[in-house]
Structures are given as C-alpha cells and as structure tokens.
Design a protein around this nucleic acid. Structure first.
Length: 223
DNA sequence: GCGACAG
DNA sequence: ATCTTGTCGC
C-alpha cells in the first residue's frame, strides 16, 4: 500500500476551508454518536453510528459497518482511516439525526480538520468532535470540579474546550466539527452528559464499537 | 535536531 | 485502537 502523507495533509488543508463554524442546526429530534473499533489485529474496521432520541437520550437505532482497514493509524491523519467505515454505517441509518458527536477531534487539529470535520463535511451533517485525549492546542490547568471548562487554544485562536465531564476523570477535548459554533458545541456535549465520562451518543457508539457486552445486549431491545 | 502525537 | 486480572478508590 502506497501512502502519500504529504498529499493527504494538503487535502486536509483544502477541505478545512469548507468547514462552517456557526450553528446551522434544524430543531433537534435525534442525536447521533459515531466511533470505530477494530477486529483481527486491526485488519477489519468496525464502524458504528448510534442514534438517540432528543432530549430523552434513549437508543433508537444503530448500524455497524465492517470494512477492510484502509490505512494505518497516523497521528493527524486519523480521519482517512475512520471516515470510510463511518460513511458506510451512516448510509445504513434509517433515522438520520440532525447532529452527530464524533469520537475524535473536530477543528482541534493541526490543520483544523479532524475526523469530526471530515465526517461532517462528507455526510453534510452538523458534527462535534469529542476526543478522549489531546492532539494539539494548550489550555490552562483544569479545576478538579466536574463541569469545569477551559478554552483549548492555539496561540490567540480558540480550537475548542477542555471539559471535566466527570469527577476524577481525564477531561474531554470538545471542538466544533461542522455547522456548529464553539459555545453550542460545548452546550450540546454538556446536555448529553448523564453521569459518565462520555456523553451518551458517544458512549453508546463506543460501547458497541468496542463490543462491550452491555451494549451488545441492546441489540434485541430496539430491533 | 528534538519532542509530541486523536484512535 | 487492541490484548487482558486484579485491584485501588470513591
């Protein structure tokens, strides 16, 4: 497999200019979560899109797509590895949500084009990036208090937020993906918090993508 | 040149 | 990300 990383980075910079950083959300009825897991030592990508009701946040539908993994993991180029599978799962979704929380960065990315941006642009849907660790940017030390927030900065420019979603847990890195602004990104994520570190849409997608038994059992509950 | 580095 | 048991702390 030949891989021109220079070209992929250039492509990200080009696509990043198409990202819309203000709210273009219709009234919300459904909210989605997207994540991927792997099988067979990474050879197979298992992508999941979960759809929850709003504001009840109950699982309505989920779809899984299994495809051969296209690329290795390269920091900064994650979206090229994950978006093909996510798009396949997205196309199977019957109840399309108006907003999707994607596992990974939005614009908090070296070229302002994380996986949430890539997926949002390709699916033409509003997205927010919810990452479990930092890729780039800086923030002042975060208070231990739950719900405490600090802006994630790149010099004078804001990239997103660092959010303490739960006591004694590592913070979340929240950033706009597509068709949402900074403040609403933070608000949507906070409103999806239900006592766990991850917001519900991401938590379900993550649980299903990782084959956790609890989430696998949801199978019969909705079908 | 060196360190950092989503999943 | 994934492979994995017990274990420490609330």
């Amino acid at each position: 497999m030949v891989l021109d990383t220079q070209l992929l980075r250039k492509e990200q910079t080009r696509q990043a200019s198409k990202i819309i950083l203000h709210d273009e959300l219709p009234p919300l009825k459904l909210i989605g979560g997207a994540d991927v897991g792997f099988e067979q030592q990474g050879a197979i990508t298992r992508a999941v899109v979960a759809v929850l009701s709003w504001p009840q946040l109950e699982l309505v539908e989920y779809q899984i797509a299994r495809i051969p993994t296209q690329l290795p993991y390269i920091p900064g180029l994650l979206s090229f590895r994950e978006v093909p599978g996510l798009m396949a799962a997205w196309e199977k979704i019957q109840n399309k949500p108006e907003l999707v929380l994607v596992d990974g960065q939005g614009i908090a990315h070296p070229r302002r084009f994380g996986v949430a941006c890539h997926f949002g642009l390709q699916a033409n849907i509003a997205t927010i990036g919810v990452a479990k660790s930092r890729l780039c940017g800086d923030a002042v030390e975060l208070s231990e208090e739950p719900e405490s927030v600090q802006p994630l900065m790149a010099g004078e420019n804001q990239l997103g937020w660092v959010l303490r979603s739960k006591k004694r847990c590592k913070p979340l890195y929240v950033s706009p993906g597509h068709k949402v602004g900074f403040s609403s990104s933070l608000e949507w994520v906070k409103q999806c918090l239900k006592g766990y570190r991850l917001p519900e849409p991401t938590r379900f997608a993550d649980g299903i993508a990782s084959n956790r038994t609890f989430f696998k059992r949801m199978n019969e509950k909705i079908s």
